[in-house]
Simulated scan of single mutants.
Amino acid sequence: MKATDQMMRQDMRRLRIQPLLHEILHIVCNHLSDEDYRRNAMRELQHELFDKLYEMGAELVTDHTRAAMGLPARGPDGWTMEELIELEKKRLELLTQPIRHFIPADGQTLRG
């Protein structure tokens, strides 16, 4: 990859952190009283929180973002229909497996 290719590519993580960071700082700002302190504290908080969120790989992916990317919608509990189907398949798979490790191979009964 050439350096120009890297420069032309947008940092989507950075773009997705910004709305989340904005909302966090808006809430925090409401709890700071002194205007000068608030201005300085917010600047420091913004940099520190942004760096931490970026380092953690945190992003805000909204329903609108998912639709723009062509991804399926999430339900009210945060799962797509496809994910729910896969979870249910795994759950049923576990429920229908024999309980081999609880039944001794030699036919003896288990003791508590």
Rank of each mutant, 00 (worst) to 15 (best):
K2W: 05
A68M: 05
H22T: 08
V61M: 03
I27M: 11
R16M: 14
A105G: 03
M69N: 03
A3C: 03
F102V: 13
R39Q: 12
Q6H: 02
E86T: 06
M42V: 11
F50Q: 05
E82A: 14
T96P: 02
Q10S: 04
I85P: 00
L53D: 02
P98A: 14
L110E: 02
M69I: 01
K2C: 05
R43P: 04
L94P: 02
P98D: 15
R38Q: 12
R39T: 04
E83H: 00
L71K: 07
R9K: 14
D77Y: 09
A3R: 14
L60C: 03
L25T: 02
L15H: 09
A105R: 12
K52C: 07
R111F: 09
E88L: 07
R39K: 14
D63N: 05
D106N: 10
E55L: 04
Q108Y: 08
M8W: 14
M81V: 11
Q97S: 06
L45H: 13
I17P: 00
L92E: 11
G112C: 10
Q97Y: 05
F102I: 10
Q97D: 05
A3V: 15
N30T: 12
L20V: 04
V28K: 15
R111M: 07
G78Y: 10
L60Q: 11
E88K: 03
P76K: 10
G107Q: 08
H22Q: 09
D11T: 09
Q10C: 03
A58Q: 01
I85D: 00
N30Q: 11
Q6F: 06
H26A: 13
V28Y: 15
L45E: 05
L87K: 09
N40M: 08
L25F: 02
Y37I: 13
R91H: 13
K52Q: 10
